[in-house]
């Protein structure tokens, strides 16, 4: 037990991580892209017409709607506020507000901007409640119910549209052969990922989620981080809702019934930790893509609706459990 002995053990302790840890790290980083690649290979090999352009196009537009909202939800999860249960209602609100604005003559770019601002404000309102200590799940559940109730009250449950304005090109035009929503999806993913990785506010969101107490002692305000994250979710659901509305040319309060669960599934399959701190919007985007391809393959193989839903559920459980167990090993 001499001093010499102690120094030597310290040196071993700081030597390169043991094999199991490196394997764990590798799995955390690469499991999703590899799984995605594997699914693609299997899909192409076993599914005639999988790579056909019309098929891919369908997958991509569908992915864009879920993916944009999932990318927007990621900061909320990163900040340690679990998930929002009002994703469906927020996107629906965006769609339902979008058409009346156009109908009264607001120019399209301004209408899009206004919808984004309104949904950002809805985010601030929820963020404030969560920041003062309300449970995020309960707050967003309540917010969803309120949004749905008010929207139904105002529209009277009728279909809203703006027949005089053509919006379908927003969803259907295909510069360089890819549908416009894909470009929007990619752009929003890049911007949000940069926001989280490169801006002071974005970093604080991750810090608050990684360890709220350490973050507080480091001068990071959990309240501001929470509000900022809900604003990003507001913007994401606004864009997602507009894409859906534009594609359909109309909207009702009953649109997008499964969006919330799909979006949460995309975030979790992407590997963002539900307790916060670790993950990225890019991962959620890949998660959305993964789920979309998986569902599409099953659709092309004529699996029934029930089987497809159950399989996606199983995929979420497997990814979350595997990543959870491995992350415990790695840290």
């Amino acid at each position: 037990m001499s001093t010499q002995f102690d120094t030597s053990t310290v040196a071993t302790a700081s030597a390169p991580a043991p094999r199991s840890r490196r394997v764990a790290e590798f799995v955390i980083t690469w499991s999703l892209p590899l799984l995605l690649l594997l699914t693609l290979i299997i899909a192409t090999a076993t599914t005639p017409g999988f790579l056909a352009f019309a098929n891919l196009r369908g997958i991509l537009i569908n992915t864009a709607v879920i993916g944009i909202a999932a990318v927007g939800l990621t900061p909320v999860t990163l900040s340690g506020n679990l998930v929002s249960l009002a994703v469906t209602q927020q996107a629906m609100l965006a769609a339902v507000v979008f058409f009346p604005l156009l109908a009264v003559g607001v120019p399209l770019p301004l209408a899009i901007l206004l919808v984004i601002v309104i949904l950002a404000a809805v985010g601030v309102a929820q963020g404030v409640f969560v920041a003062v200590g309300l449970n995020p799940m309960i707050t967003t559940l309540a917010a969803g119910a309120i949004i749905f109730g008010l929207a139904t009250l105002v529209t009277g449950g009728r279909v809203v549209s703006a027949p005089a304005v053509d919006t379908r090109w927003l969803a259907l035009s295909s510069p360089l052969g890819l549908p416009l929503p894909i470009y929007i999806f990619i752009g929003f993913t890049i911007l949000t990922t940069l926001f989280i990785d490169r801006t002071v506010t974005g970093r604080k969101i991750s810090l608050a989620g990684a360890n709220r107490e350490t973050a507080r002692l480091s001068g990071v305000s959990f309240r501001s981080a929470t509000i900022a994250s809900f604003v990003v979710l507001g913007i994401g659901t606004a864009i997602s809702g507009i894409v859906v509305a534009a594609q359909a040319g109309q909207a009702t309060t009953l649109d997008l019934p499964t969006l919330t669960s799909n979006v949460i599934a995309a975030v979790l399959v992407g590997g963002t930790a539900i307790q916060g701190g670790f993950g990225s919007p890019l991962r959620s985007a890949l998660g959305a893509l993964m789920i979309a391809i998986f569902s599409q393959v099953m659709l092309l193989h004529d699996f029934s609706h029930g089987v497809r839903l159950a399989a996606v559920g199983a995929l979420v459980v497997v990814m979350v459990s595997v990543l959870h167990v491995i992350r415990k090993k790695a840290v």
Binding site: T199, V200, T201, R203, K204, S206, L207, A210, N211, E213, T214, A215, R216, L217, S218, G219, V220, G277, F278, R327, V331
Partner: peptide
């Protein structure tokens, strides 16, 4: 509990309290 961010890298831990000083316009 409140001294480090165990899951984050050394750099992210070290910079957590002075991010603004290495940032331009946020």
């Amino acid at each position: 509990r409140s001294g480090i961010f165990a899951g984050l890298s050394i750099v992210r831990n070290l910079s957590s309290s002075w991010l603004s000083s290495v940032a331009t316009a946020g």
